[in-house]
């Protein structure tokens, strides 16, 4: 076993070998999840706590299902309604939960780096379910698995990530992962939605969507994150849709067998044409959701095994 990471905080610290190992295991869980009896005992007796400091439906459900299918005891904490409101700091919350001896903590937080901070204070495996504008590693991994299954490989592909790159942790994790696996990554979007320093990312940047999509194998759309915007990034949603919304006409610039992806939830008619999103010949959006559960099962199993293999840490 080569997977040695003690936490899954981001793609940045994973090696290509670890990524491949995780995806290989996730492939097996896809098969399990398609059976009638979807149950394993890999995490039996272990406790998984989902702490979501930011609203989430699909990610939280996916992690919950992943834990339950592996036999873990899963608890969901709605952090917005809890002691955080009473002024407890993140670290105190973490220490409190840590005292209950969880084995896996799944954390989403609106601030970049908050999950890293929390991971320093607990002695169990922490999975980052999205922190601010930093990373969303399981999303990138499920995207990678979806691409690998659709394209038969995860290298030397040309992949366009389109839309609101600046506010997207999904984009950051995907840029890192796809780069590590030696793909050509293109970023497509208006200059106002590109993060600073983008020229140093080792990617190609396109402001014209048709040019950006020319001959790509994968079109990855991002949600326009209206809730993260503090004003004035785009003139209007209709102009955005006109220039950067994915429709079949713009998609025709890509390879004929190019697949369309979206991390969800979608803004139909803002970044993607609704009909196209539902086109089972092009869109793999539903597969992405399916892969999500499998990837999270694999991630949790590997983290638990890596912890068991590592010398026991002493809590400071």
């Amino acid at each position: 076993m080569t997977f040695r990471a003690q936490h899954l905080l981001g793609i940045e610290r994973l090696s290509p070998v670890e990524i491949t190992e995780l995806l290989d295991l996730a492939d097996q869980y896809v098969d399990l999840n398609r059976r009638d009896v979807k149950h394993s005992e890999v995490l039996a007796g272990l406790t998984q706590i989902n702490m979501f400091f930011e609203n989430s439906t699909r990610t939280q459900a996916s992690f919950e299902l992943a834990g339950k299918r592996l036999g873990a005891d899963v608890m969901n904490m709605a952090m917005q309604a809890s002691s955080v409101k009473k002024g407890e700091t993140l670290i105190d919350t973490a220490l409190t939960l840590n005292a209950m001896h969880p084995d896996l903590l799944v954390v989403r937080h609106p601030q970049s780096g908050a999950v890293d901070l929390l991971a320093q204070k607990v002695n169990c495996a922490v999975l980052n379910a999205g922190d601010g504008k930093h990373e969303h590693p399981t999303q990138a991994l499920l995207d990678a698995l979806t691409i690998r299954r659709a394209k038969g490989r995860l290298h030397r592909l040309s992949i366009a990530i389109c839309g609101d790159i600046a506010h997207s942790r999904v984009a950051r994790s995907n840029i890192l992962l796809l780069g590590k696996m030696e793909n050509r990554v293109r970023l497509v979007g208006p200059a106002t939605l590109m993060p600073s320093g983008i020229a140093e990312f080792g990617v190609e940047v396109f402001e014209d969507m048709r040019e950006g999509l020319a001959d790509v194998d994968v079109v990855m759309m991002l949600r326009l994150q209206r809730e993260r915007m503090d004003g004035g990034f785009i003139p209007s949603e209709r102009e955005y849709y006109h220039r950067y919304g994915l429709d079949s006409e713009k998609l025709s610039c890509a390879k004929e067998d190019a697949i369309v992806m979206h991390p969800g939830p979608m803004n139909r008619g803002v970044e993607i044409d609704g009909t196209l999103a539902d086109d089972i010949n092009r869109s793999v959006i539903q597969e992405q959701v399916e892969m999500g559960v499998a990837v999270r099962m694999a991630a949790m199993e590997l983290l638990v095994k890596a912890r068991r293999a590592a010398p026991r840490e002493v809590m400071a």
């Binding site: 970049s112 922190d131 601010g132 504008k133 930093h134 600073s196 320093g197 983008i198 140093e200 503090d230």
Partner: peptide, 19 residues
């Protein structure tokens, strides 16, 4: 609201940045 200087590092860390 900026916490760091804009650039590649700021973008990788996902922190609010100022030019």
């Amino acid at each position: 609201g900026a916490a760091v200087t804009s650039g590649k590092f700021a973008s990788l860390r996902g922190l609010p940045a100022v030019s």
